[in-house]
Design a protein around this nucleic acid. Structure first.
Lengths: 210, 210, 210, 210
DNA sequence: TATGAATGAGTATTCATTCAT
DNA sequence: AATGAATGAATACTCATTCAT
């Protein structure tokens, strides 16, 4: 029984993912320009030319890294928000926590730093990222804030701006880990960081108890 | 006729600053690798070769951009903290506000994004930046927090981690402006952003009133 | 169809030799610094980048030119000396003659001039050349002289210095051909030159007949 | 009494010589291409621009180095030959010895190596050198040989070729000292070398005593 | 499909040369 | 005459991309 064609099939199907994973690692570690396609190929265990069978050039590989990298996650938080019943702050907690667990602990964790570093060189990719990740992420957080304010659970603040303030520490946590964290002595404890962020938010957002 | 050598002298003295300013703009806009020294020279209004009269190579120019870019500011916040009397939160307010006004509104505003983007390619520069900017900035904020907790003005939280949470939105604000901000419709209002961050913090840090 | 990979293989195996030949020609004609790698590539019928697939940089190409250029020849004279029986002067004759025919008439003829011209810029290469070519060549000539003196065929002279005097006209012949020879009207007759050198030596070295 | 204008005058008159001396050193040590005019200027103790007040460009400086470098010597040997009375071999001895002492021990000693190394890049300079140094030097040696053969002091050999054989060890001695000599353990004894060369020649040239 | 040898456009860097002072 | 700041042409080297196999 010749299993090999099936395996080859499997192999072929797995290729794009392997290539993207290798590319993501390289891009995050060294930036777009300093990443040599030869390194990506080597890390993926293929020859340089093989990359071009799957992606037309370096830029399209970069786009794919960003785009594929976020597809697994974008919808989840929206589902969480839709299904949630409970306090608005509990929803915020769930959202930030989920985002951390589903992005922060995965291979995709490096994408925000990568996107930030290259946004100005790849405006379309940045626009895509903004639209499909940032905007949707902001929208969900915005919903939680609106709901909380409507209910009287949160005090009234400008929502669009508050969204940014709420999200910033999470983004910063990721960016930090892929940039200056190497200079720190003890690597910061992400769990503690998130807990304190939420602690401050809980009390900070709370509406004045009459 | 007799003033000319002086003029020349003046020109030569001014050159490094002009070159650094041009380089900072380019590096921030396009990243280290994508910045061509020819562009830097052109923006500074000199020829390519002139750059090499002042900086031995691209890397040393980059280092100078980072190092010179921060020297003007590091000490200020420390002075503010030393001179402050008033509540600890007022000190935090002053610090964040000053940092914003002295960095965020100047040409140096792009440095954090640049440093974040290139930290892994220039570990020594990152270490220098961490030691001379980040560490000192964190220390001042840490002092304010400690003082506030000691006085009973703030509730007790892990200080090192709280520092990061407090600083993160400020860093993120700058990074954002030099990366994905271009994708946003209305550019966010920094003043409002800072106000809300401080609002949330004020209430979030406050010790329980018995 | 099936022979093609072999052909490619053959090509790749032949490349280094073709590149070295082209580089030797250029280096000898124009010197190290004035030789542009693009010219070498063009002469070898390849693109600039191809050179770098085989030699890491200009200097390593230069080293390879010198080192590969002499490997073919160094051992021959030693073999001749080992096998010789006959008068010591006949051995000297054989050695000089062989050296001329095996180096002087080949593509390697330009190496001594090249080495002389660049010795001070590439001390390690010069040391390598001295050790593997000059020293061994001197040793063989030295053996012939010692033998001749021991037998009473040659008169007694300082051997180390006599070696240099004996070899000098041969080296000079090569160096001349690749430098000032172009200014001469009739290019000198190398055969006659060697004959006269040996004629003078035969009589000059002869021990006084009692 | 203001001596300064005189001194300045003297200084100015001395400049070309100082510049040539510095240039000769640099050219000999590193070759034409690898010599930076800035180095020449520094060695001469002047600014870069000053060089251009005396020589229009690098090439003309090189030409001057060669041409000035030999002017002091060319005529001497001719005078020696004209005044000589005594055996022809004694004349040869005088010529070689004088040449060694007047060139070999001076700063001009490096010129032959320099000329050899750059002859192909500067054909006109080489032609000049050939005509004014080589040709005249060969002519004087040729005269000695002819005279000796005519007198029956030397045996008959092709004169033009014999000239080259006689001169070669002297040239090689100089060339060697400015190239591969650095690789040798004990630097060769030039006096001994010349003595042996002449010893071999004396006996080698001698006509058969009937 | 997959390979990797070959290509050549693009950039950092050097240095002879100029010229305002 | 002398300076040295400034220039820009020239060249080593890199790496994305192609294509014969």
């Amino acid at each position: 029984m010749p299993i090999s064609p099936i395996r080859r099939q499997r192999r072929k199907a797995a290729r794009p993912g392997e290539l993207l994973a290798a590319a993501l690692d390289c891009f995050v570690a060294k930036g777009y320009a300093a990443t040599r396609l030869e390194d990506v190929a080597e890390r993926a265990g293929v020859a340089k030319g093989t990359l071009y069978l799957y992606y037309t050039n370096k830029e399209s590989l970069f786009k794919a890294v960003i785009q594929e990298g976020i597809l697994p996650v974008v919808a989840e938080n929206e589902a969480i928000a839709a299904q949630h019943n409970g306090s608005s702050f509990e929803l915020l907690e769930k959202l930030l926590d989920n985002w951390w667990r589903r992005i922060g602990c995965t291979a995709y964790a490096g994408i925000p730093k990568l996107m930030v570093a290259e946004a100005r060189n790849f405006p379309e990719v940045a626009a895509f990222y903004y639209e499909h990740v940032i905007a949707r992420g902001r929208a969900v957080v915005g919903m939680a804030l609106e709901q909380g304010m409507a209910r009287g659970e949160f005090r009234r603040l400008d929502i669009q701006t508050t969204i940014d303030v709420v999200i910033a520490p999470i983004l910063m946590l990721l960016i930090w880990r892929f940039s200056l964290a190497c200079c720190q002595d003890g690597s910061a404890d992400a769990t503690l960081y998130l807990r304190i962020h939420l602690d401050l938010l809980r009390q900070g957002l709370r509406a004045a108890q009459v």
